[in-house]
Design a protein around this nucleic acid. Structure first.
Length: 549
RNA sequence: GCGCCUGUAGCUCAACGGAUAGAGCAGCGGUCUUCGGAACCGCUGAUGGGGGUUCGAUUCCCUCCAGGCGCACCA
């Protein structure tokens, strides 16, 4: 709150000043002051402004510092070569910010009244022909955490899971399960060619009721899909991931949505017929795709691509202004054609944003675990959570950018030791909870006693205390960065940093001191702030904040 | 062959084009009569190679090397 206001104020002041100098001002950015600088935040704006204003950066910095020194919350603003303004915040303002962090109001800490996007985010959407596996757990983490963060910021976000419940693979699933059912009932039948081979197929077959003896392959398909889908729903729930809607492809077919999408494209003149098939002309000017794509095959059947166009059209027709798709890197080639399709339908560029996450490589120690869906050899989300724990999994995935090619070591995850960063953060939370329990029993600050407010917080003068106050003040900005990057990873890394700042404070500053009750109250308030932000931040990542470990 | 992603410390990863590139883990050396040692302090240690743009490049451009993933009238 304090930093956001400062940035807004600084932007206004510096803009006005630049305008008076006859120049168009660059945007104002603020960053934490580096270690060797005795200040809280720094603004490199003079360096950027030097070019447009055609003046020396340091000169600009000196004048900008004079302007910024007058702003509320600023204790000191000093120019520094080659052209920074270093700002020291007012301790009183930092204290007020702590109070805000402890009581942020109904919309929560980090709510931005100007956040007004309307986004439909689709993720996981694993085929119900098999269990949810490792790669999907990364997508689930990214999508769910991002959804929570964007909602906190104030945006309208709708989360959706797309279910492919029609098509060739569904038929194949039915045939595979039927074969396993027959085998289990004494018939010597082979799995169909290209059938699903995983052990889970046998499990599905074993779950079929006695009357399955008279089932057609289609009956088996229906039964299997519903059963797998039920597992997906349980998996997602167990992983702490919620969807507003599970959208079935069959709904599109029932509503003739494919025909309608095709008709719309045709009326817009975006399709043509060639070699007996219907094509989307994707390669027009401004298009991102490099070749035209088939929508309806020679045999008259629609392609998956057309179904997907219909689905995206459906999402947009429900009024959402932006679509986010989260995809594994193995599907990245699909992005340009989908963007081309959405452009062809007349929606503005930027309507669809794809988050492509790189694949997770699994290791056991130094040995890479090869996964083959064909042979049914893969690590499922369930197994992963069982081995590593929900909190560890979600935090681990949340720490990385989507672009990072990551290695996941099962042996390391299984250790559940301090090698896992999530404990580093959770430990701080538990430690602070312990202090509060102690405060009550020792009667330093009996339960129910109000914490320090206002001027009482001026007692927080130690550098380690100031560092915590400042870090807490950075929380809303971190959520803003998460939105800009469309990734939860800045938040996860922020929590690591916040936790890292707490321990030095704890070593240096005695919190509970019966001889100094006012100082104790101020420090308890600071601890409460840290505890609150950690619990809140972990919550946005779907990670628990235990009071004891 | 073409396209996308990546290459940062021993390992796993951070860093809107900004100051002396940060963490965690591992390693070495310290800290412990008081609030949780799952901790703290100190040390060691890095931008794949080569060009370019810039006052300034891990970041942008070109190129080379290495790895991952894609290049269907499959889904």
């Amino acid at each position: 709150m304090i930093l956001e206001r400062l940035r807004a104020d600084a932007a206004r002041v510096l803009n006005d000043w630049a305008k008076a100098q006859g120049g168009e001002a660059p945007p104002v950015v603020m960053s934490p002051a580096p270690e060797h600088v005795a200040a809280d935040v720094c603004i490199p704006w003079p360096l950027a402004a030097a070019k447009v204003l055609k003046r020396k950066p340091l000169e600009i910095a000196a004048q900008a510092a004079a302007e910024l020194a007058e702003l509320p919350g600023v204790a000191k603003a000093e120019p520094a070569p080659p052209g920074f303004v270093n700002i020291t915040l007012d301790l009183m303002a930092l204290g007020a910010n702590l109070e805000h962090a402890l009581a942020p109001g109904e919309r929560g800490h980090g709510y931005d009244p100007e956040a007004r996007r309307d986004i439909l985010i689709e993720f996981v959407s694993a085929n119900p022909t098999g269990p949810v596996h490792l790669a999907s757990s990364r997508a689930a983490t990214l999508g769910d955490s991002l959804t929570r963060i964007l909602r906190r910021r104030g945006h309208k976000v709708w989360a959706e899971y797309y279910v492919n419940d029609v098509g060739r693979q569904v038929k194949m699933l039915g045939l595979s399960v039927k074969a396993r059912w027959d085998q289990a009932h004494g018939k010597d039948v082979p799995l169909p060619e290209d059938g699903y081979q995983g052990e889970y197929i046998k499990d599905v077959a074993a779950a079929a009721p006695p009357e399955a003896a008279g089932w057609s392959p289609e009956d088996f398909s229906r039964f299997s899909i519903e059963r797998m889908l039920g597992e997906h729903k349980r998996d997602m729930e167990a992983f702490g991931v919620r969807f507003d809607r599970w959208f079935r492809e069959s709904e599109l077919h029932a509503a003739k949505a494919l025909d309608k999408a095709l008709a719309k494209l045709r009326s817009l003149g975006k399709v043509y017929d060639k070699d007996g098939a219907v094509w989307l002309g994707s390669t027009g000017e401004g298009s991102e795709d490099d070749k035209d794509r088939v929508l309806v095959r020679k045999d008259g059947l629609p392609t998956y691509f057309l179904a997907d166009i219909a689905y995206h059209l459906d999402k947009l027709s429900r009024g959402h202004k932006e679509l986010i798709d989260i995809l594994g890197a193995d599907h990245h080639g699909y992005v340009p054609r989908m963007k081309a399709a959405i452009a062809a339908l007349g929606y503005p560029p930027g309507t669809l944003h794809a988050i492509v996450h790189q694949l997770v490589h699994l290791f056991r120690g130094n040995v890479q675990v090869k996964m083959s869906k064909r042979a049914g050899e893969f690590i499922t989300l369930n197994e992963l959570v069982e081995e590593a724990g929900l909190d560890a999994c979600r935090f681990f995935f949340a720490l990385r950018t989507a672009n990072a090619h990551m290695n996941f070591d099962l042996e390391l995850a299984r250790k559940q030791s301090s090698e896992n960063p999530v404990y580093y953060v959770q430990y701080v939370h538990a430690r602070i909870c312990s202090i509060f329990r102690e405060a009550a029993t020792r009667n330093v600050l009996p339960a129910g006693t109000p914490l320090a407010r206002g001027a009482a917080l001026l007692a927080l003068k130690e550098p380690s205390e100031r560092a915590l106050l400042l870090k807490i003040a950075g929380f809303p900005e971190v959520l803003r960065v998460c939105e800009r990057e469309l990734s939860p990873h800045p938040l996860a890394n922020y929590l690591m940093e916040l936790a890292g700042l707490y321990h030095p404070f704890y070593e240096k500053c005695r919190v509970l001191d019966p001889a100094a009750k006012e100082l104790s109250a101020a420090r308890l308030t600071l601890c409460d702030g840290v505890r609150t932000v950690i619990a809140d931040g972990l919550g946005l990542l779907g990670v628990s904040a235990p009071e004891q470990m």
